[in-house]
Structure formats: structure tokens, C-alpha cells
């Protein structure tokens, strides 16, 4: 077997298109998924027991079904009920639904973790519930949700590869097309992998900067006895 990455140059356009579409789908699902997620989170904290049960069921169902089945249900299932939609639209919608279940749990946990007094002190001074949410709760929640939301967004971005199975021409789909033309799986998948990896790094880096801007990136370092460190740490100590 010979390794010839240069032949991929003939297909650079397809790779670029696929990459761009994957990025667009990820951003769309991030926005749509978060809007849905915030809605479901607020529903999950409603006074009405029925509303809470609806939110809970939404989350449990979406989290326990493989994404590929959610995708097929939206793509093949909804047309069946009369709604016909293009693959890209169905794919983005399915991805948004999928990720919204996780985002909603992140948002809900962050709000519940905030001491009650924060909201109450804003209310007691005369802010309306919406003003208290906007001025006091939201900025603090934003800080705590960034790291878990980043992880979830990375997962979702990777999950978008499954959209290839309903012919959305994103990165994985283009990879499979090139692979079908060239029969060079090693080169193709190496390239695709590298691109996904780079997108992941960009997302992680963006999130890191965002976190630094929102303030609060203090991590306490644990100093341990070197003997215990032999077992409890996987990093080599930095040379001093």
C-alpha cells in the first residue's frame, strides 16, 4: 500500500465545501439548540407539575435514543406525516433537538446552583423577575455554563458527521464521495480526521477566550505529596 496524500489536492474543493457546511451546521444547531434548551430549562423549573414532566420527558427521550435514529425519524418520519423537508434542514433540526436536551440540563443545573439569595436580593431591591434574570442570574449562569456547553458543542459537532447518512453534503459525506472515487481510504480519512480535529481545536480555543473574557478562569492547582502523585496524577511534573 502506498501513501499518497497529494492526490487529495484534486478534491480540495469538495473538502472545503464539506468543512464549511459542517461549520455552518454546527453554528446553526448551537444557536437553535440553545434557544430550545433555554426554553426547556425554564419549563423544567416551572411551578406546574405537568410542564415539568413534559420538560423531563423531552430530555430523557432525546438523550436515550441514538442520534442517528432521531435524525431518521425527523427525515423519514416527518415527511410521512405530511411535512416534506430538505435533508440539510431536517439534519440541522435533528441536531438542534438532540443538543437542546443536553443544553437544557446544563442551563438548569447552572441556575439551580446559584444561591437563591442572588435572585431574591435583586427582587427585594425592586427588580422585576425579568430584570433580576437579566442583571443578576444570567451573567453568573453564563460563566458556569461555558465549559460544559463547550464539551457538548464539540460532541454535537462530531455527531453532525451522521448527517452524511441522509446525504447532507457535509465533511464526512464529501469524504465518502472522495473515497468512492479514489479507493484511498487511508488518505481520505486521515484528511477528514485532521479537519475535524482542527475544527474541535478552534471551538475549544474560542470557548477558552470567551471564558477568559467573561472573567473567572481561576483554577486552583492541587499540590500533593510526590509519593501520592505517583498514583494519583497522570501528568509528569513540570521541571523547575
Amino acid at each position: 500500500m502506498r501513501f499518497d496524500p497529494w492526490m487529495l489536492l484534486d478534491y480540495w474543493e469538495l473538502l472545503l465545501q464539506g468543512t464549511w457546511l459542517t461549520i455552518r451546521i454546527t453554528v446553526m444547531a448551537l444557536v437553535l439548540g440553545y434557544l430550545l434548551g433555554i426554553g426547556v430549562a425554564l419549563l423544567g423549573m416551572a411551578r406546574s407539575r405537568t410542564l415539568r414532566a413534559i420538560a423531563g420527558t423531552y430530555v430523557e427521550v432525546l438523550r436515550n435514543i441514538p442520534f442517528i435514529i432521531i435524525l431518521f425519524l425527523v427525515y423519514y418520519g416527518l415527511p410521512f406525516s405530511g411535512v416534506r423537508m430538505p435533508a440539510l434542514f431536517a439534519g440541522t433540526l435533528a441536531l438542534s433537538l438532540f443538543v437542546s436536551a443536553y443544553y437544557s440540563e446544563i442551563v438548569r443545573a447552572a441556575i439551580l446552583a446559584l444561591p437563591r439569595g442572588q435572585f431574591e436580593s435583586a427582587r427585594a431591591i425592586g427588580m422585576s423577575p425579568a430584570q433580576a434574570m437579566w442583571n443578576v442570574v444570567a451573567p453568573q449562569v453564563l460563566r458556569t455554563i461555558i465549559p460544559p456547553s463547550t464539551n457538548m458543542t464539540l460532541t454535537m459537532m462530531k455527531e453532525s458527521a451522521v448527517l452524511s447518512s441522509i446525504t447532507v453534503p457535509e465533511l464526512t459525506y464529501q469524504g465518502l464521495v472522495i473515497q468512492g472515487n479514489t479507493f484511498a481510504p487511508f488518505e481520505v480519512f486521515a484528511a477528514i480526521t485532521l479537519i475535524y480535529w482542527m475544527i474541535a481545536i478552534v471551538i475549544a480555543e474560542t470557548s477558552r477566550r470567551l471564558e477568559a473574557r467573561v472573567g473567572l478562569a481561576q483554577r486552583q492547582s492541587v499540590t500533593r505529596n510526590p509519593i501520592a502523585d505517583r498514583y494519583l496524577s497522570l501528568e509528569r511534573r513540570p521541571a523547575r
Binding site: 462530531k158 464526512t172 481510504p185 480526521t193 480535529w197 474541535a200 481545536i201
Partner: peptide, 30 residues
């Protein structure tokens, strides 16, 4: 990884970053 061997840990770190950064579907295709 806890043995903290030189080179080995660096290689493992790259593999971890690769696995975490790429879709499971691609890993299955590979």
C-alpha cells in the same frame, strides 16, 4: 499513564486528543 514514562505519555496525549476531537462515525469508518 500513571507510570509517567517519557514519550509514551506524549503519544497517548495525542491519541486522546485525536479520539476526542473526531466523530465516532469516522473512527468506525477507519
Amino acid at each position: 499513564r500513571a507510570a509517567k514514562l517519557p514519550v509514551v505519555n506524549e503519544v497517548i496525549a495525542v491519541v486522546i486528543s485525536f479520539v476526542r476531537g473526531t466523530p465516532l462515525l469516522i473512527q468506525i469508518f477507519i
